[in-house]
Nucleic acid binder design. Structure first.
Length: 285
DNA sequence: CCCGTTCTAGCTGTCACCCT
DNA sequence: AGGGTGACAGCTAGAACGGG
């Protein structure tokens, strides 16, 4: 089994099609078919279920894909570690929670990109648990997420500190009345949600309604329209508050602090691009 | 018919081996 | 050391086949 076979296997698994994988890899389709058959013969087990609509992984294929991802990532990192030994260059895949991406991260990344223009930076946004999973799966080099996090494979650098506030439609201030309204959050993995539930229990509210939304903008619109309240970092709602479409309310001290960490796998071979980003985050502390 | 896989023949580059 | 030769891996092109 060679790395080339694993790359082809990974491409077919990802695309779910030999034809699409061949196009992606700039091979002819029959070559991809042959390499997959060769791999299956070598391993003495089918890796895919074939249908006229594409290819789906067998349990053995699922298992191999996990190893292929790790092996190929390590190989890429090994190449990076030699090619970009001192000069920060090459790809750097970063994730960030949406509330942090807009306010804190944009200036940081702008400074990073101006210092290291040869780094091909890509950024995706998501919620903490989803970003963490992508880091664990080697799909991201690192991510800005809410801490604290306790994973054996993850290392972190404290990046930013936020103040969590309760937001509501303007003109409302009675905390008990506000907390009895529905809470608008990102999805299940949203870190603020656990704090909110703790706060609600602390104020004696045992029943509460949670609504899930996909983006910050929709949550702000919902709160502004009086649909409910939410808990978000102050920095992420500052502009909306300035416009007067929402009002913010300070939370009790034990619920206020919010830490943003930059996390990465501890077994990553640090590329120069990743090292420079970690250094920049540390310098901002 | 379309879209996907599979099969086959043939081409090309690489490598080991042998000869001069 | 340098060149010729054969085996082999990897690839392409084209045709056949199959299911919705």
């Amino acid at each position: 089994m060679e790395s080339g076979d694993l790359r082809i296997f990974q491409a077919v698994a990802r695309e779910g099609s030999i034809t699409k994988a061949a196009q992606m890899l700039n091979y002819v389709q029959s070559n991809v078919t042959t390499r997959i058959q060769y791999l299956e013969a070598q391993l003495k087990t089918p890796l895919f279920r074939r249908s006229n609509r594409g290819m789906t992984l067998t349990p053995a294929g699922e298992n191999l894909l996990g190893y292929a991802d790790k092996i190929l990532t390590l190989m890429d990192e090994a190449v990076k570690s030699t090619q970009y030994s001192d000069h920060a260059a090459g790809p750097l895949r970063i994730g960030s929670i949406e509330t942090t991406a807009a306010i804190h991260l944009t200036p940081l990344l702008a400074e990073y990109q101006s210092r290291y223009p040869d780094v091909n930076l890509s950024l995706i946004t998501g919620v903490t648990h989803a970003l963490l999973q992508k880091v664990l799966d080697y799909e991201l080099d690192g991510a800005f997420v809410y801490g604290p996090i306790d994973y054996p494979d993850i290392e972190h650098v404290a990046a930013f500190e936020e103040e969590l506030v309760l937001i509501s439609e303007p003109g409302k201030s009675d905390m008990h009345e506000l907390l009895s309204k529905p809470m608008l959050f990102f999805d299940v993995g949203c870190t603020h949600r656990a704090k909110a539930e703790s706060l609600l229990r602390g104020t004696g509210l045992t029943t509460y309604q949670i609504m899930e939304f996909g983006t910050l903008a929709v949550i702000l619109d919902g709160v502004s329209a009086g649909l409910g309240v939410s808990m978000l970092p102050r920095s992420s709602i500052a502009k909306a508050e300035e416009k007067g479409i929402i009002a913010s309310h300070r939370l009790p001290e034990e619920y206020r602090d919010l830490q943003v960490w930059f996390v990465h796998r501890h077994d990553s071979i640090y590329s120069s691009a990743l090292t420079r980003l970690i250094q920049l985050v540390e310098a901002k502390q």
